[in-house]
């Protein structure tokens, strides 16, 4: 089955629908899978605004690019992040958020921002877009891929001026992107277990007594999700 030629252009990741079809064929399911969800450009975010959604799609596509194998877009990582920010994670339900906050404290003392993850994304995306407008005359999502790469690199190296309470933005984005690539598909990402298939992780099978003694032998069977979906 010839694979589509993936380009890391803006159009490349808007072609997410075709990529998903290729994924399904690659996984060779033994029974019909659940129906394909809507393509990302038709997805109605629960948390992100339309502009933020464009940013997140562009950003995650850089962090885990598409290519001969699925990347963040095919794995629907932006959907994962949207759903996470709309949930208790986004509102920092588990964290101690009482003040006073010393946002510019020693990073080794951990998260001290008064902002929740959802707020970090909202204000952080706005700040990065503002900086892109200022330095490149367009918001992040509208920049050329090469320029986007430069911006992301700058962000990762603390070279985009951000107030202290937003300094966790890149780490959060990268962490959430990897989570969205590898978490169980029930959370909206790791579509058709693309992340697990990419590295050969068996997912939720969790049963290997007969394999402990097989040293230096590749494990051949594809992954299974908590829902029972087979890869």
């Amino acid at each position: 089955m010839p694979l589509p030629d993936w380009k890391t252009t803006r159009r490349g990741f808007l072609g997410g629908g075709a990529g998903a079809a290729a994924l399904t064929a690659m996984a060779v399911p033994l029974h019909a899978q659940s129906p394909e969800p809507e393509p990302l450009e038709n997805y109605a975010p629960e948390y992100f605004t339309a502009e933020e959604w464009q940013f997140v799609m562009s950003a995650t596509a850089l962090l885990i690019p598409s290519g001969p194998t699925p990347g963040a877009i095919e794995a629907r990582v932006p959907v994962f992040i949207d759903l996470q920010l709309a949930s208790g994670f986004g509102s920092a339900d588990d964290w101690y958020m009482a003040g006073p906050h010393i946002a510019d404290a020693d990073p080794l003392l951990g998260w001290q921002s008064p902002l929740t993850p959802a707020e970090i994304y909202r204000e952080g995306i706005a700040a990065v877009n503002a900086w892109c407008e200022q330095t490149h005359e367009a918001p992040f999502a509208d920049l050329l891929p090469q320029t986007q790469q430069e911006v992301m690199t700058a962000l990762s190296e603390d070279e985009v001026p951000l107030p202290p309470e937003l300094r966790g933005l890149f780490d959060l984005l990268l962490q959430n992107t990897k989570e969205g690539f590898f978490a169980d598909p029930k959370y909206g990402g790791n579509h058709r277990m693309a992340g697990w298939t990419h590295i050969g992780f068996p997912g939720a099978r969790a049963s290997f007594l007969e394999w402990v003694d097989k040293h230096n032998v590749p494990y051949p069977l594809g992954p299974v999700a908590i829902s029972g979906e087979r890869g």
């Binding site: 060779v28 033994l30 029974h31 099978r205 049963s207 007969e210 394999w211 494990y219 051949p220 069977l221 594809g222 299974v224 029972g228 087979r230």
Partner: peptide, 18 residues
């Protein structure tokens, strides 16, 4: 079951997954 071949039949595959 031990071989865990990708092309295995559905019955034993379900056994390994459940």
């Amino acid at each position: 079951l031990t071989a865990a071949e990708p092309g295995m039949a559905l019955g034993p595959r379900l056994y390994l997954d459940n």
